[in-house]
Design a protein around this nucleic acid. Sequence first.
RNA 1: GGGCGUUUAGCUCAGUUGGCUAGAGCAUCUCGUUUACACCGAGAGGGUCGGGGGUUCGAGUCCCUCAACGCCCA
Length: 1043
Amino acid sequence: MTTFNPNDIPSRFDFAEAQNRIFQMWESGGYFEGDPESKKPPYTVVIPPPNVTGALHLGHALNNTLQDTLIRMKRMQGFNALWMPGTDHAGIATQAVVERRLKEDEGKTRHDLGREALVERIWKWKEQYETRILGQLKQIGSSCDWKRTRFTLDDVCARAVRHTFFDLFQKSLIYRGKRLVNWDTYLQTTVSDDEVFSQTVKGQFWHFKYPVIDPKPGEPDCVIVATTRPETMLGDTAVAVHPEPDKALDRVASELREKLKKSSDAEKASVEAQLDALAARRELMLPKLEQLRDMASDGRKLLLPLMDREIPLVCDVWAKPELGAGCVKITPAHDPNDYEVAKRCDLPMINIMNRDGTLNVETGVYSGLTMKQARKKVVEDLDAIQLLETVEDREIELPQSDRSKTPIEPYLADQWFVAMGELSQSAIDAVVDGEVSITPKRYERGYLDWLGEKRDWPVSRQLWWGHQIPVWTKACGSEGEVQPLIDAIHALPGFDGTVAAVQLEPCEETDSKKRANLELPFASVHVCVQSGCEDFEKALEELGLTREEDVLDTWFSSALWPHSTLGWPEQTPELACFYPTSTLITSRDIISLWVARMVLMGLNNCGEVPFEKVYIHPKIQDGFGETMSKSKGNGIDPLDVIAKFGADALRFGMAHLCTETQDVRLPVQFECPHCQHSFDQTKKNRILPKVACPSCKKEFSTQWAESEEDKSLEKGAVTSERFETARNFVNKLWNASRFAMLNLEGYEASPISEADLTVEDRWMLSRLTTVSGNVTAYLEDFKYADATRELYEFAWHQFCSFYVEMLKDRFADESKRPHAQRILAYSLDCLLRLLHPVMPFITEEIWQNLANLCPQRGWGEVETVNRCIIDAAWPELDPAWRDEAIENQFALYQAALSDLREIRNSQNIGNKKKVKFSIKCTADIGDLLRPLGVYFSRMANAELIELGPSAEAPETSATRTTAEMEIYVDLDGLIDIEAEVKRLEKEKANLEKSISSKQRQLSNEKFVAAKPDLADEIRTSLLQAESQLSTIAESLQKMIAKL
RNA sequence: GGGCGUUUAGCUCAGUUGGCUAGAGCAUCUCGUUUACACCGAGAGGGUCGGGGGUUCGAGUCCCUCAACGCCCA
């Protein structure tokens, strides 16, 4: 082993070299590992598992920095800390990326490949990206227990998923039902809401007449409905009218009047015209609308043309009296709004579409036509029987599939649901009762509102990548088939309630003729099978049952994450020790999708909430206030930031911007790879494949580079200069430590008696006590920005700028040196510990270097320090060391010093020129300042000549005042009178402003009566200000005389 | 449409229960290489706290209202 020589320490921290080395040391040393057998109290955090779709972005960097900071502090505080890592299979997102790749690279669809081969491909993709993601997390410094890394689709998680599904199925909390989905008729699959985009196209609005059956005298013989999709009329099951047309019209009118008040002159005419039209319409239509409403209440029926089906006239608020004829046709199986109406009014839902988008047998003669063909024919046929009223041109919103670019059809499909009633309530109670707390508290509301709706959770997804639903189904054509089948299942070898559960789903269509027509079964028998019963599954298949093809919503497995990762349903030591976990740190967009579901699943499966605290951190936007994303080109790769600034700077920067607001802005820059010049990203240049550097004019490529030519250019990094502050801070800490180590030669550990502590030592101890207390409290409360601000201010402007500077004089004095060394080592040690959770790498590096010189530290008691800072004890200083009197004493010194420096600057006196000065103050204050007087020389190259009540201003001097002191700098032969006059005048003006404001307050009788203590304080400070003013006025007069 | 949030210096943000001349970092300007650090040191300039109204002795802070921007849910 080579001997450590502080002189070899470079003046910059080589983070690139150190990070990997240090991380490996931690990992191989087992420092990240949680021990289920430990006697220490547990502290657990589960990572929000990143999706395996791609690389991590800055939001992940923020999220994981915050978790790591917390877990590192807890580890140092003596907890048995476990940070559980892993990744999410992210069903739709991942399958979509792989499918897109397949299409682009090989021109194939998933159907060309088949289920097994596609899933295999996705696994390969997952392996590749998971490695990359975990690598990124490690680069950030994440101290996860990596040996425990889980994946939401691995065997352990799969068992938990299956167990949960089985449990819910058995409790009848899982059931199969119908739901409208977005159907892509080209790909023959459902697509999620966020994969649907709307396009405005030119279309027509057709008005049809539906005859009324047996109208009473005075009633119309038909009603008029309008639609943009005539062919859907084949599936109509009702026509709706508004239950309170007058009130509805009133509301529309009052909304228009409100709008009129607010609208500009230009808009007024149009709004007024609308109001007039509405009034006219009311006059003309209201009686008719009310009549229709009465007819509906009276149970009048209509005859659906072409289909000759009787359909009811119903009352529902979905009908808009202000539009068209005021009636709306209801097609429950093919329109989301109509679907809601059907549920409210208990209407039948008729599916008229085959999976390929053609019309099914329900539509009779139209069966087999495409939607487009059917539209033409329906319109022609209605026209032929004089039921087509009018046609108008109109722009319509057409939903399209983002994947196939073909129109989306709303389609009623079989879906599995989780019944949310009881489950939601348990999760509501957990937060209301305070078992789970959400910080910031404002996010509770969204959580509670969402759960309060208690909408059943549709969990099936028509995908191949995910947990396949463990249900085997057989459709029974007749009633007679059902019981024998159930009996046969019960008679299967190994059947009992722990292995399989049976549910019977009767067909919604009760008319046996229609069922036969539509090839619908009488009922479906569903069997849910536990994991590990492959023989039983086979037996079911032999009975003719087939396995459900759909997979589960990816959030189903995510909801189990806090306990599935710990081995549930096995009662593992890990589960016993680390569940419930302590804190969850995540971002607000998945509070309902993920957080709420974890709470209810945790309660259902384990009987305990999954975590005590939830912290919701801000979201990062770019300089334009837009969300960062790869598709916009404004996304920052954390690795680019780490490469340029180092992981510690990334982390410090992240924590530093983590305030209580919900968004933070981070302006984004390109960095030229040729000359390292940084310049702002704009909305224009961020989408270019190559960009020219404005400084060196050379071009570099971006993430958009596709052509060979562009790709051959060097790639420019995308970062943010907002990390510079943090990088500079890292450098400052490095060099302060370097200075310390350069001065620790001959260090010997031994206790210092309290009496030997100097004023500045006491000050440093007091500050350390305050700062460590504050930082601890801030981090416990998730106030990361406050914690880092406090550390930054303390380390830079107190520790470095004052304490270390003062120690320089003491190092120069052999007799004071050993004492100074011990106290410096001690305070640096303490500072490093406080910074470690946020800046783990540099603090570890300095810690180990420092250990070479002073392995034993402490000023009162001496102890040998741990080998690594990662498991060193968190500073807990005796609050008795907090000394306000000493801090005030120091403040006096700092005030005098800054006046001296200001005089030097305003008088333009070079640093090398020594000045002499005096301070006039009370004897008490003089006594306080005296011990620090010697440091004016080092800090301002100024010699204190006189201190106390008898100090006088020299003939030619600059004067400054503070509340407690008057400071005179002897400027014989140096003075710039004009500058001094200017400065004094300004000072005078400031004081006058301050005095008059104080006088105003004191002359306010109500104020003095209400706040006597505060008034006293102001009175005192007024006296001081007046005295300052007279001193300044006097000096000013003297100066003016010299002009 | 409903909910949440933001608006303070050129930029990014602090500002606790209302109280003395509203703070920081970056940027700008001036001066400076002094036994760690130019990724440094010292100092300066820069704000009618989004607009309007109210409560109060007193409002960046509390209430109402308007506006702009952002996010989530429908």
